[in-house]
């Protein structure tokens, strides 16, 4: 033997799992939704996605290299996810400069100020999205109509989201039953034929991604399922209490960014709890807050805010919700 034997503490083998594998697994799971958005929005979606991803990479690299003076770790794929999620969360005809600002806020403020991947408290893409939503409400809420693949970018017709339609209608004092015929059918919403942000419209594609991530064990079922179940149950109760003011659970599940949020945003490793029990509490919190904001808040859509609020509770959940220990006395 020409080289010296290695000595290290056990275990001596590793599963071969890496951060990259997990990150690119998530990216792969997002592809169906990306394809759907290309089909519905055409060129706009492609431009938005490319801009978001490229600027996220650029900002991460620049900040790591020149501000933190460290070894850039852009290969880990997390910037790609942030970029794609940011793109998924904006209208497909958003001006490019706004996207770049969103990427700067997402990476710069949402992630790097905390010390980079693993240390951020809030989901970076959501930080970027909410920043844009508050700063540029007009641009952020004029969604192009999903007309099928088109090469035009700015002159697309706009369409309100189903949730916004209802919120507006209810504000004017109209009854829900008279508004429902104007919103897309459940089937249309499931297949993405509605107004909305780039990646949130196609429920079917998002669910496909969920199954992929569950099969690959990238995420566990706890967070997405509890969020969806909580929203379904809670909005169902409201709907039963007053069917004229609150839409039914199926509509709530398919509308807005709920599926996108539950499947891809809330399940972000860094900003979600570590234990299964904690994940369930976190999921219930998000579901509950989403319905509250949608039903009683000023914004028609509440998923982003709900996730950000629950992100803030994650350290607390981690500190107090411990996994069940082996041999622990049951009360």
């Amino acid at each position: 033997m020409n080289t010296k034997v290695l000595v290290a503490p056990s275990p001596h083998v590793h599963s071969g799992d890496t951060i990259q594998k997990n990150m690119y697994g998530v990216v792969f799971a997002m592809l169906p939704a990306l394809v759907f958005s290309f089909v519905y929005f055409g060129m706009g979606a492609i431009i938005v996605t490319l801009t978001a991803v490229a600027s996220c990479y650029l900002f991460e690299y620049t900040i790591q290299k020149y501000l933190l003076k460290g070894e850039p770790t852009i290969n880990d794929g997390s910037a790609l996810i942030t970029g794609m999620l940011l793109a998924f969360n904006v209208p497909a005809n958003l001006p490019i400069w706004i996207i770049i600002i969103g990427a700067l806020v997402a990476i710069g403020i949402g992630k790097m100020t905390f010390g980079g991947l693993g240390n951020n408290v809030f989901n970076p893409a959501l930080v970027g999205r909410v920043f844009l939503l508050i700063s540029f409400p007009v641009q952020m809420t004029s969604w192009p109509k999903p007309l099928g693949f088109s090469t035009s970018y700015f002159d697309a017709e706009t369409a309100a989201t189903p949730l916004a339609l209802i919120k507006e209608g209810l504000k004017k004092g109209e009854a829900l039953s008279s508004l429902m015929p104007h919103v897309p059918s459940n089937m249309d919403m499931f297949l993405g034929n509605m107004g909305g942000s780039m990646g949130e419209i196609a429920g079917a594609a998002l669910i496909l991604g969920l199954f992929y991530m569950l099969a690959k064990k990238i995420i566990s079922w706890h967070i997405p399922i509890t969020i969806l179940a909580t929203v379904a149950i809670f909005s169902g109760i409201l709907h039963l209490a007053n069917p004229e003011a609150y839409a039914g659970p199926m509509f709530q599940l398919l509308s807005g960014g709920l599926l996108l949020g539950a499947i891809f945003m809330a399940t972000d490793y860094v900003t979600s709890p570590m234990s299964n029990k904690g994940m369930i509490i976190y999921g219930i919190g998000i579901g509950f807050l989403t319905v509250i904001i949608r039903a009683f808040g000023a914004y028609p859509e509440g998923v982003s805010f709900a996730i950000l609020i629950m992100n803030a509770f994650v350290p607390l959940i981690n500190a107090y919700i411990k996994p069940k220990r082996f041999g622990e006395k049951r009360k």
């Binding site: 010296k4 034997v5 290695l6 000595v7 290290a8 503490p9």
Partner: peptide, 9 residues
């Protein structure tokens, strides 16, 4: 002289 090489934390 080293007789082996440590590879742990």
């Amino acid at each position: 002289p080293k007789t082996n090489s440590y590879d742990g934390a």
